[in-house]
């Protein structure tokens, strides 16, 4: 068995404080994400015309995913340079693919 509770005391209190502040930011992130979601659903429920609604909910989705990546998945932190460049590589290929499938597939 691990002596968790003893170890907790030994953790540097500075570190603990930092973790706590980090967690505060995460909660703000979460609240924002829920807000974006609610707005997106509200826009659709209100029956806004497609030409306004679609770009709006797409932007909301992209921003929300940005929060997810940078805060929840810590891509803003140090040591994430290589992972984030490869994620952006993947996003680049993803964008090309989706652009293709919405334009040149011979409807």
């Amino acid at each position: 068995m691990n002596n968790d509770n003893m170890n907790i005391d030994k953790i540097n209190s500075f570190q603990k404080q930092q973790n706590k502040e980090e967690m505060k930011k995460q909660i703000i992130t979460f609240v924002l994400m829920i807000a974006f979601t609610v707005v997106a659903f509200a826009v659709v429920a209100s029956g806004l015309e497609a030409i306004y609604a679609v770009p709006l909910i797409l932007i909301l989705a992209v921003v929300q995913v940005g929060f997810q990546f940078y805060y929840f998945m810590h891509m803003k932190d140090e040591g994430h340079e290589v992972p984030s460049s490869l994620i952006f590589g993947g996003i680049w290929v993803a964008v090309l693919t989706i652009l293709t499938m919405t334009t040149i597939i011979w409807w």
Binding site: P83, L86, I87, G89, G90, I91, V93, A94, V95, T97, I98, T100, M101, T102
Partner: peptide, 14 residues
Amino acid sequence: LGGETVLFACFFGT
């Protein structure tokens, strides 16, 4: 996950 991005992009595109 970088690869998974492309995987899901293909499903989304389809």
